[in-house]
Design a protein around this nucleic acid. Structure first.
Length: 465
RNA sequence: GGCGACGUGGCCAAGUUGGCAAGGCAAGGGUCUGCAAAACCCUCAUCACGAGUUCGAGUCUCGUCGUCGCCUCCA
């Protein structure tokens, strides 16, 4: 079995082969840290978390770099506005972002490079590009010469001639070509700056990712990821810079996630059409977002509405239902029934691998998992013992772990437990005496506190609701 | 204007090389239960529209309509 990945560069699904057997060099463009991260960032981080987890599950050693762009126009502008030091501002949002990711059960990257920590590498790269004739300095700025790069536009599928440079932003007429982009920006007074052969200044937007990759991964990497809004110009320019310098293909697979749609439009920092991760988590769990992400293709736009989130919550509860233990008094189930369960466990596993191997088709994988949920619940209903249920439940848990779903047990131990149990015992005494009004009242009132009671032949169970 | 993606039941959504349309939510009916909840069983689509290729198309080709993304900072 082989993994297939959709490659933006070729617009086809391709068989996944790594540069080095068993090892994956993965780089994902993280946020520019000038404000609170929103759910769109979370989606992207989650998509690559899922990809990373799956590759690891399939036996790869994944070296995962997620960068922070911690110096740029917006950070500087924002810092000025609030009379803050730009580095401190960036630092604050980096910490917040890392906390957000942790709250969403996103595994930390192997390493988080930052633009400001790569300045010497950036300067070295730019010098190399100038030497090779791919870049030129003007008044302390340095620009990349797109004309010299004959492949330019190959990732985004556009030609220089087709692009309406300056259609929305004034063209700087000092540049040789309107599409030339800044590698280095001359310092303005009061702004962060570093010394360079072209005078004091700071890096342009795209160069830091090229430099970080070169520095921490090497000249070539396996997977380069990010939102599909980065395809042009960001990733296009990364390719131009890196390949012009090294003369080698940069990333083998370019993987892009679709945009999260809020109110029918892309969630976006600049337009203010957003919900921050923090806000989101006051209402929903990280699992709810993760399920929503998993339930559709990572490459498609993600429908993000209250209704969809509620549906995800319900679906998670159903997934969770498979993990309910067998009744302690269960008498066991026939070998035939057990075989049905075993077969479904195997089928679900095979389906999971086949789906995920196919460009990380998590929605398909989930579909198969629900088939197992049903059979587990069926088998339990038929009277299976916990020992009989256990292997199937364990396999299902293994798969939900791969997807990064936490499925926290709805019942958690707390020091309220003895009191809840006391109420249940009292209520069951009342039920034995057919005092329905009082027993129902207890059930209603305790529900208001968040405890759900469920009666069955074998007794009463409860969980936090 | 250029480039690209997409349009599957009330909602979300999957769909390998074309061969009688996964799954979840919601809804209706039933089993169980004092009731409720949970669980289980049953029911619920011809795939935007039109034309074409084919023995056969959601799956290929062309056209129409619609939605979204990029071409400016953006995950």
């Amino acid at each position: 079995m082989t993994i297939k990945i959709y490659n933006t560069l070729t617009r086809k699904k391709e068989t996944f082969e790594t540069l080095e057997p068993g090892k994956v060099r993965l780089y994902v463009c993280g946020p520019t840290v000038y404000s609170n991260a929103h759910v769109g960032h979370a989606m992207s981080a989650m998509v690559f978390d899922i990809i990373r987890r799956y590759l690891e599950y399939r036996g790869y050693e994944v070296r995962y770099l997620l960068n922070f762009t911690d110096v740029d126009d917006k950070i500087i502008a924002r810092a000025k506005q609030s009379n803050q030091d730009p580095f401190e501002l960036a630092e604050t949002y980096i910490h917040e972002y890392e906390q957000n990711l942790a709250d969403l059960n996103i595994k930390p990257a192997t390493f988080n490079p930052r633009a400001t920590q790569e300045i010497s590498q950036i300067i070295a790269m730019i010098s190399g590009l100038i030497e090779k004739g791919y870049a030129y300095p003007i008044d302390g700025d340095v620009y990349f010469r797109v004309e010299k790069d004959k492949d330019y536009g190959r990732l985004s599928g556009r030609k220089l001639d087709d692009m309406q440079a300056g259609s929305r932003i004034a063209v700087d007429d000092r540049k040789e070509d309107p599409m030339d982009f800044a590698l280095w920006k001359a310092a303005r007074p009061g702004e962060p700056q570093w010394e360079s052969p072209w005078g004091a200044g700071r890096p342009g937007w795209h160069i830091e990712c090229s430099a970080m990759n070169l520095h921490h991964h090497g000249e070539q990497i396996d997977i380069h990821g990010g939102g599909n809004d980065l395809i042009f110009p960001h990733h296009e320019n990364e390719i131009a810079q890196t390949e012009s310098l090294t003369g080698k293909p940069f990333a083998r697979y370019w993987v892009h996630n679709g945009m999260l749609q809020l109110h029918g439009e892309k969630m976006s920092k600049s337009t203010g059409n957003l919900i921050t991760i923090e806000e989101f988590l006051t209402k929903y769990s990280g699992d709810t977002l993760r399920y929503t992400v998993l339930n559709s293709s990572y490459r498609s736009p993600l429908t993000f509405t209250e209704e969809v989130l509620q549906q995800s919550q319900k679906a998670l509860e159903r997934l969770q239902s498979a993990f309910k233990p067998a009744s302690p008094t269960a008498g066991g189930v026939s070998p035939a029934d057990l075989e049905t369960l075993e077969k479904q466990t195997g089928a679900t596993f095979d389906h999971f691998i086949a789906s995920m191997d196919d460009d990380f088709n998590s929605a398909g994988a989930l579909g198969g998992m629900f088939d197992l949920v049903r059979v587990i619940n069926q088998t339990r209903s038929l009277g299976a013992t916990q020992t009989q249920l256990e292997p199937a439940q364990r396999k299902l848990r293994e798969l939900t772990d791969v997807l990064g779903l936490e499925l926290l047990a709805t019942s958690s131990t707390s020091n309220a437990d003895p009191f809840i149990q006391l109420l249940i015992d009292l209520r069951n005494q009342m039920r034995a005496d057919k005092q329905w009004a009082y027993s129902d009242m207890i059930r209603d009132k305790i529900k208001d506190i968040g405890v759900i009671l469920e009666d069955s032949k074998d007794g009463t169970t409860w969980h936090w609701g």
